[in-house]
Amino acid sequence: MQRDHTDRRSFGYLALAIVTCAAGTLAVLPGRAAATPGAPGIDSISTVDLAALQLTSTDTAPIVKWPSDPPPEMTVYKTQTAPVAGSAGTSDAQCATAVYAGLDSTYSGSGYTGLNYQELTGFGSKNSYSVVSVASSYDDDNAAANMVANTIQKWTDCNRKKVTGDLSGSSETRTINNVVSTPDDIYLVNNIAEGGACSHAMTSQGNVVVEVSACRTNIGLVKQGLQLANKMLVKLP
């Protein structure tokens, strides 16, 4: 079918929540996948090629694509080395950080020393797919962990709130669901609206923060953001 890039981002997110809990409460999911055995630790930001952490079609397609809905591949739609501008144009700049990955209001003032943003898209006969992944580096492990903690506090404070904006190419309202975590501190939030769902995850390892938002029309995504964050983490040197 013809790839319409206006339509590709116009979908909302199906009303699926992975957990029911009180606002501000974190539920626990299974932990992250183990990193490559014997891989050296991250000693400085110079050892990390952020672009090398990015997700590929091979990483993403089996996780986000509905099995009966070809094509099997995701293609690169956009890359950049700065956050996405536009949070001020949403109805709530703080809560927009839970809805959109790579947003300026998430990263501005966070102290990041490098950032790599990528968007993959896919178009099947039944659904459209989008995966935004962001890798960012910081001066040290504590700075990266603090960036995640500050962001997740915003997500938690925004539980059940609605955000209206047009960063996705058309104006839509999305509802933020409960924030959940794994024992290894990968945090996950779902965003829902009429027509689809997104699974949005963030975590840090060493001095690197990874953030992923995976979206699909018609049939909602639940834990896919968590799975894709793991795909990035295992690429760390």
Rank of each mutant, 00 (worst) to 15 (best):
S171W: 05
D92G: 06
I176K: 06
L236F: 03
S170W: 00
V163F: 02
A98P: 04
R8W: 11
S171R: 14
P237N: 08
V212G: 03
S87D: 08
A143H: 08
P237Q: 08
L226F: 11
V212A: 08
L55Q: 04
L120F: 04
P62V: 05
Y100K: 10
N190T: 07
I176T: 05
K161W: 01
T75W: 05
S199D: 05
T90R: 08
S91L: 10
D166F: 07
L53N: 06
F123R: 15
T81R: 14
E194K: 15
N230F: 07
V64G: 05
V19D: 14
M202C: 08
A17L: 12
H5S: 10
P30L: 13
Y129M: 09
L167K: 06
G225N: 03
L120H: 03
G31T: 12
D4G: 01
P237S: 09
N146M: 13
Q54K: 12
V163A: 03
C198T: 12
V180P: 01
N207K: 15
P40S: 14
G89R: 12
D166A: 15
S168E: 11
A229R: 03
A143K: 14
R9D: 07
I42R: 09
L16K: 12
V163S: 02
D49M: 07
G102H: 04
D141E: 12
Q80C: 04
L236D: 03
P67G: 07
E211T: 04
C158E: 05
G102N: 06
G122Q: 07
T203S: 14
M232P: 00
V19Y: 11
A201H: 02
S125M: 08
T60E: 10
A61E: 12
E172Q: 15
A96E: 12
T6L: 13
A149R: 12
N230G: 11
F123E: 13
D69E: 13
M147G: 00
T81I: 00
L226V: 00
P30T: 10
T97K: 09
L167W: 07
C158A: 05
K161F: 02
L233V: 07
N230E: 13
G41K: 13
D157F: 05
K231R: 15
Y100W: 15
T20P: 00
Y129L: 10
K231T: 01
T79W: 05
A23P: 08
S10Y: 10
E172P: 00
A61P: 11
V84L: 14
